[in-house]
């Protein structure tokens, strides 16, 4: 997705740089460079102050005992050794990985299915697309509260509906009954909220495939499944890689859905890593420990993304 090749077709370049006539051109180019720097300076200020500085700071904090309300003292590497002894971190890591796998597989399958369903102009296609996209306009926290009510026994219709269909027997407490039902609730919520968005990205990839290629495949007598496997999937690779990266990153950083829908329960069974970071920082008031977990999580994500980009680049060559 990041083509950093230079697209600004600078017409002044290569106009005979050694002739005397090129001096005004060169001066003009220097002036444009300064203008560019001026226009880019707000971006640079934001990126340095609110991204690079915190990035360094989080590493610095992880080396210190950093209570919320007292001056920090150096204690490296206690925060990192503390992680290994923390049972909650261990169970949260395991849970977060499991959740990430489940979400990535299901969300990808559903989003791709939806994208394939609505990729052609057909009657009703605009309505379908809108219906799938609308949930993404609802904030994720609001969506979590919506599902809290929807799945509740007090006002929610789900238990009634499933009971009438004979699928459940009596009262099921979806969001807090058991570890599995709590996870399922969160998964359904995330699928509902994010399938449309991922469908949109996949749709842009699908529509970037030139129709002539499909035409040629049909002339060659390729079946539907063959066309999908031999043409659609390979040509969609960059888009698919992007979508998968977004899904994995998003799931590893899950917070809202568990904080609001399941409260991390029952018995911490749906406590994600980011919830542990929050708890270390603002409930146990130990910012250093929170920073250490952040640094580890950060490292994992960067390694994952670098591998992902490497695979992507190699295949697109």
């Amino acid at each position: 997705m990041t083509t950093t090749t230079d697209p600004t077709r600078e017409r002044t370049a290569g106009a005979g740089a050694t002739t005397p006539a090129s001096r005004p051109l060169r001066r003009r180019r220097a002036r444009r460079a300064w203008l560019g720097i001026a226009y880019a300076s707000p971006t640079a200020a934001m990126v340095v102050l609110f991204f690079l500085v915190p990035l360094v700071l989080v590493g610095w904090m992880s080396l210190h005992r950093w209570p919320l309300l007292a001056p920090p003292t150096l204690n490296a590497p206690d925060n990192f050794t503390g992680i290994a002894d923390n049972d909650l971190v261990r169970s949260a890591t395991w849970f977060t990985v499991k959740y990430t796998l489940v979400i990535t597989v299901l969300l990808f399958a559903i989003s791709l299915g939806l994208a394939l369903l609505v990729q052609h102009r057909r009657p009703g296609v605009g309505m379908f697309r809108t219906a799938f996209l609308l949930p993404m306009a609802v904030g994720f926290a609001s969506a979590s509260l919506l599902f809290l009510g929807l799945l509740s026994d007090e006002i929610g219709p789900v238990n009634d509906l499933l009971g009438r269909l004979g699928l459940v027997d009596g009262y099921v407490s979806w969001t807090s009954g058991s570890a599995n039902s709590a996870l399922t609730s969160a998964v359904v919520l995330v699928l509902w909220r994010f399938a449309g968005f991922n469908m949109l990205i996949l749709l842009t990839g699908l529509q970037a495939i030139p129709p002539e290629i499909y035409e040629a495949a049909r002339v060659d007598g390729a079946g539907r499944w063959q066309t999908f496997r031999r043409i659609t999937l390979p040509l969609m690779r960059p888009t698919i890689a992007l979508v998968l990266t977004l899904m994995v990153t998003g799931s590893l950083l899950a917070f809202d859905q568990f904080w609001i829908l399941t409260r991390g329960g029952p018995d911490n069974s749906t406590t994600s890593l980011v919830m542990v970071i929050y708890r270390e920082a603002f409930i146990r008031l130990d910012l250093g420990s929170a920073a250490a977990i952040s640094v580890v999580l950060l490292g994992v994500l960067v390694v994952f993304n670098v591998i992902q980009l490497g695979v992507l680049r190699r295949r697109s060559n």
């Binding site: 915190p54 989080v58 990153t249 950083l253 920082a281 910012l287 920073a291 952040s294 950060l298």
Partner: peptide, 12 residues
């Protein structure tokens, strides 16, 4: 690539 939660503690 370096989303959210990991640097929000530092931003705080």
């Amino acid at each position: 690539m370096v989303p959210y939660a990991t640097i929000l503690i530092a931003l705080y």
